[in-house]
Design a protein around this nucleic acid. Structure first.
Length: 811
DNA sequence: AGCACGCCGACT
DNA sequence: GTCGGCGTGCTC
């Protein structure tokens, strides 16, 4: 019956090139019903026992004798066959081992933990005959019960060799434990095991001093249905042991139930009803509902201006998906996965929603994931990794703010959720919705060339006008003698806004522009000794810190390079802006939101709530306030420095600036009162700033595409960026040259290889960084072995000192 | 990745 | 002579 399951192909948990292929194992008869494609198993691998995933079943071959699978680890396989094949695609696409891709799809608790331990062999007793250092080891092992080999090696004269020999001589045992880190939360439920009459009778029969037991019995007789033990204890005032005693007498049921941890602390969410759609919204809705009906894979770019009501369209499209008996995934950028956002989805779909975000503990995350896997919920909402939600019948995937860079994972596998999602909808015949006011240039290009459906929403709900955007040239301000952070127009607007009793949001884009320390005499900044980057000044503990390696040092009294004492704090951190505000506009109530003030759990929400309740006039913050905020009283948005990221060495700099300004402008005047935006910049003539200010979306994308085409960047090419790093400057240079030379013969027709050049940050944590870029024509089919070559490169750890990481972007 | 095996110099 | 270091090669 299960004959086809006699041999399982397994990827084992060793991320190396040599082991990046399936290994065959015999499936013992008893496991054949249990094991599936996607099962997590424990297998012998050489001398070790490892975790692995079954990816296929193989025809029976009698040639080599196969080792058996030792254990199937989960009742329900964590992965579906679709996800297993997706993992192989991800590995192929992003040049990583298949096991790494598989691990990316499951919650951390399933990644297993290996620990090796040494303990004394149970049959061994004659330690008196051993040399001193071995006797000491045995003594310590006896005392502690067990030790890790690492601990043992710290003892004098204990080497790996010695441990091996002692194991061979049956003096000690070295064991490997592969196991779950799963900590399911179990709750004990207690109910009546007998009828209420019996319980009452038993209660009477108890001796008088068993008062608590009588009370408990009485309570359970009145409420015979099982309730959590903790609840019973608070209701009756009894203690754990009392109830346990009664259970042991067979009067009460005692049952351990697995429980989901509730990250929302039992908060209930107010139910919301669908809102009527405007004609424009309706059209957008139809563009989604139509292909959904036909079960055709389809991508829809929902290009809607800020405030055009995209979320309501999402909600109704999800409802339609659920009505069709299918499931939906909603991806949102981590930063906007706020309680406000969650509330909207929970409000419509209640317990049908699982939420996956980084604030959850591993255990909580696992619980939410299990709800998805078991089919208990039909909607999954989360950040990037939720794209791997293990649903079996997906109808809809929504990516909100699709242009956000956080959809790209920075660690291996370095996937982009948008591309993974488009792969998944192919498998499910589902619809992918890309929602944004400012599409990524890639998505815009695809829409333009007809590769995806393009729906625009040009009207704001209730027809609110767009705020007027004033661009202020800070060079003029400087010439006019204003050397403060605030231009006169911004200061003026702020005062007026507050006088009217309205609120303002001040946005400070910190990237590449935080406070640093500069010597006025020699012009040098204080740099990190381990990284090629200036240190940033943190007022809270008066230190200079490196944001890349965490190095911290006290603020120098004199310039480290010239000894001058004319040291100046430069740049504009949020703290600095806050102080400046206090000085220039005393009495203003300011809420500051940045990493420092939102570190603590729930701080984010608390600050926003306070602002929403009008407890401050100004909300001052970084990136995190650019998205999704919707406060009726906000009528002014100020951008302190619009061009800070324009000068970063990144071909997306203009795109990012345009997106950010457009998003930020969307925060003003969303309700009755008209809004206004003041943008401060040193480069007011730049097209990204000009066009954002005039809401010239279309012209911006046309211009940007023209430049990308001209300079050959995505979407007009595919791009591999190889980053090499090494502690030795010469060595990394050599590796770079070698890499380019080695890759040259594999370049497909029309591809070019650039570099090696120093990476944008040439040194981090004492490692020198070099970059090689490969541009390939879009839609390349003739790879000429390039990807295989790159793959082996990505596995190469060389002399251990050399590290390689490869990014893939573009088409 | 680990962990054999195996070859080679340097200590009791 | 063994001890201990490090370079290959293999894991169903």
């Amino acid at each position: 019956m299960n004959d086809h399951k006699r041999v399982a192909r397994v990827f084992v948990d060793v991320p190396s090139q040599q082991t990046d292929r399936p290994f065959d194992y015999e499936v013992p008869t008893a496991m054949r019903d249990e094991v599936e494609v996607g099962s997590r198993v424990r297998v012998p691998f050489g001398p070790r026992k490892l975790l692995g995933y079954v990816v296929a079943f193989a025809p029976v071959s009698d040639a080599p004798r196969l080792k058996p699978i030792l254990e199937v680890l989960d009742l329900v396989p964590p992965l579906t066959p679709e996800l297993v094949s997706l993992a192989r695609w991800v590995a192929q696409q992003y040049l990583c081992p298949v096991i790494t891709a598989l691990h990316a799809m499951v919650p951390a608790v399933l990644k297993g933990r290996y620990q090796r331990i040494c303990r004394v062999h149970p049959d061994f007793a004659e330690e008196d005959l051993l040399p001193e250092h071995e006797r000491e080891l045995i003594r310590q092992l006896r005392e502690k019960g067990e030790m890790s080999p690492e601990q043992a090696l710290k003892l004098p004269r204990v080497s790996r060799f010695l441990l091996r020999r002692m194991a061979a001589d049956k003096r000690i045992i070295i064991e490997e434990r592969a196991g779950d880190r799963v900590t399911r939360k179990t709750v004990i439920w207690v109910g009546a095991a007998k009828t209420s009459e019996v319980l009452r009778r038993e209660a009477k029969a108890l001796p008088a001093q068993a008062r608590r037991q009588k009370e408990v019995l009485q309570y359970v007789a009145d409420h015979p249905d099982p309730i959590p033990l903790a609840q019973l204890l608070t209701e009756t005032g009894a203690v754990h042991a009392t109830v346990k005693r009664l259970a042991e007498k067979g009067l009460l049921t005692w049952e351990e139930r697995e429980e989901y941890r509730d990250p929302f602390g039992g908060r209930s969410f107010e139910r919301t009803e669908p809102l009527p759609l405007t004609p424009e919204q309706h059209q957008a809705y139809d563009a989604i509902a139509e292909p959904l009906k036909r079960r055709e894979p389809r991508t829809v770019l929902l290009h809607g201006v800020t405030g055009s009501g995209k979320t309501e369209i999402y909600l109704q499209a999800i409802t339609e998906t659920l009505n069709k008996g299918r499931q939906a995934i909603v991806l949102v950028p981590e930063i906007s996965l706020t309680p406000q956002m969650v509330r909207r989805f929970k409000g419509r779909f209640g317990d049908d929603v699982a939420v996956l975000h980084s604030g959850l503990s591993d255990g909580e995350r696992y619980d939410e994931w299990r709800k998805i896997r078991s089919g208990e919920v039909r909607v999954a909402i989360g950040a990037r990794s939720a794209v791997f939600a293990p649903f079996e019948n997906i109808g809809l995937i929504i990516i909100d703010e699709e242009h956000e860079s956080s959809y790209k994972q920075e660690e291996q596998p370095k996937y982009h959720a948008r591309l993974v999602a488009s792969k998944r909808i192919e498998a499910h015949g589902a619809v992918l919705v890309l929602g944004t006011a400012t599409p990524s240039v890639e998505s815009y290009y695809q829409a333009r060339t007809g590769k995806l459906e393009w729906v625009t929403l040009n009207q704001r709900v209730h027809g609110r006008p767009f705020p007027q955007v004033d661009v202020v040239d800070m060079r003029n301000e400087l010439r006019g003698g204003n050397r403060s952070i605030f231009s006169r127009p911004l200061k003026q607007a702020l005062m007026e806004c507050v006088d009217r009793g309205e609120q303002a949001v001040l946005f400070l884009n910190r990237r590449g522009y935080s406070t640093f320390v500069l010597c006025r005499d020699c012009g040098k900044t204080v740099e990190c000794p381990h990284c090629d980057i200036s240190l940033t000044y943190h007022r809270t503990n008066r230190t200079l810190r490196c944001h890349y390696c965490g190095h911290a040092e006290p603020v120098p009294q004199t310039c480290p390079s010239c000894g001058s004492s004319h040291i100046r704090y430069f740049g504009t951190g949020t703290q600095r802006v806050e102080e400046e505000l206090a000085r220039q506009l005393p009495g203003l109530r300011v809420i500051r939101m940045d990493v420092d003030t939102t570190n603590r759990k729930g701080a984010h929400e608390r600050l926003l709530t306070a602002f929403g309740e009008g407890k401050a006039d100004v909300l001052l913050g970084t990136q995190m306030i650019a998205k999704g905020l919707d406060f009726p009283k906000v009528t002014l948005v100020g951008v302190i420095a619009a061009d800070t990221m324009l000068h970063l060495p990144d071909y997306r700099a203009a795109e990012r600036t345009f997106q950010l300004l457009t998003q930020v402008s969307g925060r003003a005047g969303r309700h009755e009162r008209p809004g206004r935006v003041v943008v401060q910049t040193y480069t007011p003539e730049h097209y990204s700033i000009q066009m954002a200010a005039r809401y010239e979306t279309e012209p911006f994308y046309i211009q940007e595409c023209r430049l990308r085409k001209q300079h050959r960047y995505p979407p007009y090419c595919g791009l591999f960026t190889i980053l090499l790093s090494h502690t030795d400057k010469g060595a990394v240079m050599q590796a770079g040259m070698r890499t380019v030379r080695g890759l040259q013969p594999y370049m497909p027709e029309g591809a070019e290889i650039l570099g090696p050049v120093p990476a944008p940050i040439p040194r981090i944590k004492d490692r020198y960084r070099l970059q090689v870029m490969i541009k390939v024509p879009p839609h390349t089919d003739e790879w000429n072995g390039l990807t295989e070559k790159l793959r082996s490169l990505s596995f190469l750890l060389g002399d251990d000192e050399l590290r390689v990481s490869i990014d893939r972007e573009g088409i």
